[in-house]
Design a protein around this nucleic acid. Structure first.
Lengths: 232, 232
DNA sequence: CAGTGGTCTAGACCACAAA
DNA sequence: TTGTGGTCTAGACCACTGA
């Protein structure tokens, strides 16, 4: 027996929800019925349900039953509001321009952050993000090439996370570092700012649920035009 | 029986950890021993331990035992690690110097952020924070005077949150804005930095659980010496 | 009322860690 | 090898929900 029974049951119920056999908001069979169906004790069945509850997929109501939970707010990308969220919240229209997209050898910092050997290749994308057509952010995204073999440039550059999940990867921990810097000539030109202006810098490393890092992003935001907001 | 047994056991173990009967990093008795001690089945005892694990208070290691987890990051102050936490994590010693502490009239921005009428007075504190005696941060904290009547300068300036809670106030939502700026002459002097250097700026408004804002902080960090880190 | 989830028992066998 | 946590069983009684 490779996996524990309650994990198998967890996966099975999750599949049934994803294939809409159990619909959002509806009640699934009772613990006793499911235990019978899967041929396990009720305690074991409860263990499976508990893990689904922890993931926000199921919701139990005392005396009433177990329900498929509504989709929760995506909290995947850390406590910070994403660029798209913030611009939308401000009534602005976000857009972005891909300025490079190349496979090549990793730099030292990329090797370190992504746990790469020096013979492994990476995909590196550069992008400018805009709010109402004003440049706000310059970002460089690096991804191990082997993770995205066979995926289209279109999918990778416009919705990387969704594309990875559709290919069976699961996103795990996200770590971010935020600091500040002075705009050099290059950044000033790309962002239509002045050399010597203040930039917010952001490093982000995203891992798969296996713990393997899959994305390393370095972004610079024009401080006059952007701020990070979060509340708790 | 008011509370379930596993909650009682949870509380009891938590108390024993807080009173240092079980020390941080040390192993607590095995599940079987604790079940015997509390006169419950092992499954029930495991349920108690599971809740403590979910809170990050205990940590179980297969084949080895159950351990008191290291202190987690204070989550009170939003997802960001606090200054004290970060310096500690880096093996540095945090300290701070109060450079002013005065009651007076609020500025326009203070009136707005703290929802004050213009005849209400405020307490304004300025402080420099250090890591290993290197200045890292200059911050200005403003508090409505009426909220802290009768509290000592010592208590307010060194542990404001604890003092407020001891006086019956409950801390509510925290909102932060992070951006960047260029050091002016004054900031450079206070932080032993150069004019034109990059600073991280942080605005924070903290509310009581009633929704009334009680603290407005403006802080500037020397970007070369500090970064905000958080992960999810 | 009948059915549900919440709690609890007293065992059992397993895989893993440390000695 | 011994002791640990991880999993699992086949019951039980309770409090709660909803008809």
């Amino acid at each position: 027996m490779e996996e524990p029974m309650y994990i198998k049951i967890h996966n099975q119920i999750k599949r049934e929800i994803e294939s809409h056999i159990y619909k959002v908001g509806s009640r699934i069979p009772s613990e006793r019925q499911l235990a019978l169906k899967f041929g396990v004790s009720r305690m074991t069945l409860r263990q499976a349900i508990k893990t689904l509850e922890d993931e926000g997929i199921l919701e139990q109501r005392l005396g009433s039953g177990t329900y498929v939970a509504n989709q929760k707010v995506q909290e995947k990308m850390s406590g910070i509001m994403s660029f798209t969220d913030i611009t939308h919240a401000n009534g602005q229209i976000p857009s972005s321009k891909l300025i490079s997209y190349r496979v090549g050898k990793p730099s030292l910092s990329e090797m370190e952050r992504l746990h790469l050997a020096k013979d492994q290749t990476i995909l590196r994308m550069e992008r400018i993000r805009y709010a109402d057509n004003v440049p706000i952010c310059y970002e460089v995204v690096t991804i191990p090439h082997k993770l995205i073999l066979g995926m289209s440039k279109e999918n990778i550059s416009t919705h990387l996370y969704r594309t990875l999940e559709q290919n069976g990867y699961e996103i795990g921990r996200v770590t971010e570092h935020i600091s500040a810097a002075i705009a050099n000539e290059n950044a000033a030109r790309l962002l239509n700012a002045k050399k010597g202006e203040a930039l917010i810098t952001r490093l982000q490393v995203t891992e798969l649920s296996s713990g393997e890092p899959f994305e390393y992003t370095r972004a610079s935001y024009v401080a006059d035009r952007f701020e990070f907001t979060f509340s708790k």
